[in-house]
Design a protein around this nucleic acid. Structure first.
Lengths: 242, 242
DNA sequence: CAGTGGTCTAGACCACTCA
DNA sequence: GAGTGGTCTAGACCACTGG
C-alpha cells in the first residue's frame, strides 16, 4: 500500500496539511512539487487528483491548488476520514462489538426481480437468508440477502452467522469490492418495530445494494433495514460531472 | 465536452456496449483499443478508468476488462444514468414542474457550528433562509440555508425565490460545483408534518450539506428535510479504497 | 504575459492471471 | 510464458487566471 509513488505523496501531503504547513491554504504548483519530490508531474497529478476526489483539496485551472478549509478543522460536523461506506466494515469502526444472529436460511427460486439483479436464469437457485446485526448486543439492522448457489456452493447457516464476505475471500479466493447502493427511508413495519425496538413514529433507513465480485459478477442482492439512529451516509460529490 | 479524446472514447464505447457489440461481456485489451482508436494507451486508460468509477465496466489485472451486466439490463432497479446527485438538479429531472416558496429570509450572526462549517469569524453575518420546495405544486422538501453575506452581498428574498446557484453563476461569475453531504433519517417533527403533509408515523429524509465554490470556499450550509417518498440517493461504491 | 492546472503522447517496466 | 491491466516517466502543447 505504501510502496506506490502517488500513495507516498498523498500521505506526505496530508501530513504537511495536518501540520499546518500551508498556512495560506495554497499548495505549491505541480511542477515544483514534482521537483521537490523528485517524481514526474504525472505522479503529482495523480496524487492531487485523488485528493481532490476525496474533497481534501480543490484544484482551479490558472489559479492553483487549495486546501479544503473544512479538512483542517476540528469539531466540524464532517469527518474526512477516508471513504464513506455505510456498509459492513464501517459498522465495526466505532469500537463496538459487532454481532450477527441468523433468523432464516433457505434455498429458493429467484423471482423476476432477483433474476434481473443477479443475472440469473429462472432455473437457478439462490440462497435466501435474513440476519439481525447487533452492536454491543443491541440490534440495529435487519439484513435480507440473496446469493446464487453457483457462486458459493458451500455456503451454510454457520458461515452466515459469521462473515460471508470473509468466507468468500479466504475460501473461494475471490473478493467483493464494489457495490451499487440505493438509499431511502420508510416508516417502520411490524418486523422493524419488534426486532429493532422502534416506536410507532420511528422510521428505518433502507440500503438496497448489489455487491459485485472483482470480475464484475453480481454476487449478492441485499436489503438492509437500519434503525434510524444508526443510519448515516457521508459523501463528497462533484456536481460538475454531467 | 465532446472534443476531448477520452470523452469521445467513453461515448463511443458506451454506444458499442448499448448495441451489444461485446457479446461475451469482454472489451478488447487496452493496447488494441489504443490502436483501433489511434490514440495513446494512456487515453484509453483514462476513459476506462472513468467508466469503471461509474460502475459501467470492471477491470481486472491479468484478466481483462468486462461490462457490468447490470449496465446493459433494462428494468433493473438500478439506473446508471450518470451521476447520482439527490440535489437540486436531479429533483427537476423527472419532468415535474419545480416550485419554490420562501418561508423566511433574514440576516443573523452565525452560531459556533456555522462559524466552523462556513469558516467565518464570529463578527461576520450570514443570510439565513428557509424555503419550501414543490414539484407540480406538491411540497416535498423544507430547506434551511445559511450563506455568508460577504460571498453574496446582493442576495435577496427575490433571488431566493428563484435559484440562488444560478444567480451566483450568472451574476457573480463563480460556480458551485462540490458538496459534502451527510445523509440520515428522522421521525417527522411538527413542522414536517404540517408543511410536507406527513402522518405521525411518516419520517423525513435528512440531507445536510456544505456547498463549495470552485476555489474551495464554503459557500452555503444547507439542511434539507425531504418527504420520505422523495428521498432517494444512488451511489456506486468501491469498497477497496482503504 | 507569466503562472497554473488540463490533456495527450510514447514508451519502459512491473504484477497478476491463466492456460 | 503470453497476455492483461497498473505504475511511472519526460515532455509537448493547450486553456484559463490574474496582475
Amino acid at each position: 500500500m505504501a510502496d506506490l509513488v502517488y500513495q507516498r505523496i498523498i500521505t506526505s501531503l496530508k501530513k504537511a496539511i495536518d501540520e499546518g504547513e500551508f498556512s495560506d491554504m495554497r499548495l505549491p504548483d505541480e511542477r515544483s512539487l514534482a521537483e521537490s519530490y523528485s517524481v514526474s508531474r504525472s505522479s503529482i497529478k495523480r496524487a492531487l487528483g485523488l485528493m481532490a476526489d476525496q474533497g481534501i483539496i480543490f484544484k482551479k485551472r490558472g489559479s492553483g491548488t487549495f486546501v479544503n478549509p473544512l479538512y483542517v478543522k476540528q469539531g466540524s460536523s464532517f469527518n474526512y476520514s477516508g471513504k464513506n461506506l455505510g456498509i459492513t466494515d464501517s459498522f465495526n469502526s466505532k469500537g463496538q462489538k459487532p454481532g450477527v444472529k441468523v433468523l432464516s436460511f433457505d434455498v429458493i427460486h429467484p423471482n423476476k426481480d432477483m433474476q434481473d439483479n443477479l443475472f440469473l436464469k429462472p432455473s437457478e437457485f439462490v440462497y435466501s437468508f435474513k440476519r439481525l446485526r447487533l452492536l454491543d448486543d443491541v440490534p440495529f439492522m435487519i439484513e435480507t440477502g440473496y446469493i446464487p448457489i453457483k457462486l458459493a456452493p458451500e455456503l451454510s447457516e454457520q458461515i452466515a452467522s459469521e462473515s460471508i464476505f470473509n468466507y468468500v475471500e479466504s475460501e473461494l479466493g475471490k473478493e467483493v469490492n464494489k457495490t451499487y447502493l440505493n438509499i431511502s427511508a420508510e416508516p417502520s413495519d411490524s418486523e422493524g418495530k419488534e426486532l429493532l425496538h422502534l416506536a410507532d413514529n420511528e422510521p428505518v433507513g433502507l440500503m438496497e445494494g448489489i455487491f459485485f465480485l472483482d470480475d464484475g459478477t453480481p454476487f449478492e442482492f441485499s436489503t438492509m433495514k437500519l434503525h434510524y439512529k444508526y443510519f448515516k451516509y457521508d459523501s463528497f460529490v462533484d456536481l460538475a460531472n454531467k
